[in-house]
């Protein structure tokens, strides 16, 4: 009896699990499986769930086009990360140390920037970047993306630094250490986990940006992965096999990053969103 009940319970759980997770994960499998099938001929049927005739032809079409975009995205995302660190982390230290109304107001302002839809400023950014000659350039995209990412870096690192015990700084002050030193030798080394976490998030932010890539490219200039994939899929409308391959290639870098940086990402999710 109990045995039967147990079997029933386990299979019930399994069924619930399947209902919950299959719709989430199966599309990923379907895309990868389809990317290895020849779908562009007149005789091709719908993608098969288990590919019988595996081909790499789709990848030879997609790779040459997408790889360049991946390179562009890598440069942009790395620069966005670096710039966000450079500006955001010292500011986070300052705010953590200053405290008071000034600090609260600045944090509030930074928080508000996170609410602004990117599309709401893109027309203005377009006209401004045109004046400054930044349209269709790496620098323009990096600056625009950083404006979305840097405040986030600042907010999270500040929250972490606020939680550092004040005695550490007092001890440093007794040593005669200046504020620059308090930053470089006390708060920065201790905040490394938070800094890495925001680095990952700002990297992802720069990597996934589409609004700026679409509106600030001026028709020429560097094409990040998002824009490249968008154009690829609108160009290869009937060669769906190649689009499957391109989508798969485009999903690989962030997946690698996810598995490499899992512990920081999870920490960031908790620190970033749950410190209420």
């Amino acid at each position: 009896m109990t045995r039967n009940y147990k079997v029933l319970r386990i299979s019930g759980r399994l069924a619930v699990g399947l209902v919950l997770f299959v719709p989430l994960l199966f599309p990923l499998y379907w895309v990868v499986a389809s990317s290895f099938q020849n779908l562009s001929t007149i005789f091709a049927n719908a993608p098969q769930i288990i590919p019988t005739h595996v081909t790499a032809a789709n990848y030879s079409v997609a790779f040459g086009s997408i790889i360049g975009n991946i390179g562009v995205s890598l440069v942009i995302a790395l620069c966005v990360t670096g710039l966000s660190w450079l500006i955001g982390v010292p500011a986070a230290h300052a705010l953590a140390r200053l405290g008071g109304t000034v600090s609260n107001v600045v944090v509030m302002v930074m928080l508000v920037t996170q609410m602004i839809p990117a599309i709401s400023v893109s027309v203005a950014l377009y006209t401004i970047f045109h004046q400054w000659g930044l349209l269709g350039s790496y620098l323009g995209l990096i600056l625009a993306d950083t404006s979305l990412q840097m405040p986030f870096a600042l907010i999270v690192v500040r929250a972490f630094m606020v939680s550092l015990p004040g005695e550490l700084f007092d001890a440093a002050a007794v040593d005669g250490a200046g504020e620059v030193r308090a930053f470089t030798s006390v708060s920065l080394p201790l905040a490394v986990p938070a800094v890495i976490t925001v680095g990952l998030f700002t990297f992802l932010g720069g990597w996934t940006d589409f609004v700026n890539a679409l509106t600030l490219n001026n028709g020429s200039g560097p094409q990040p992965l998002t824009l490249g994939l968008f154009k690829f899929s609108t160009q290869y409308t009937t060669n769906t096999g190649a689009v499957f391959a391109a989508a798969t290639l485009a999903a690989i870098p962030t997946t690698i990053l996810l598995f490499m940086g899992m512990r920081w990402i999870r920490g960031g999710l908790r620190a970033g969103a749950l410190k209420g």
Binding site: Y126, H130, L135, N217, N218, G219, S220
Partner: peptide, 15 residues
């Protein structure tokens, strides 16, 4: 080099 089929060519020229 500006080859896009949408409004980008026009905005590019106008700018």
């Amino acid at each position: 080099e500006v080859v896009t089929g949408d409004a980008a060519y026009l905005t590019h020229i106008l700018s």
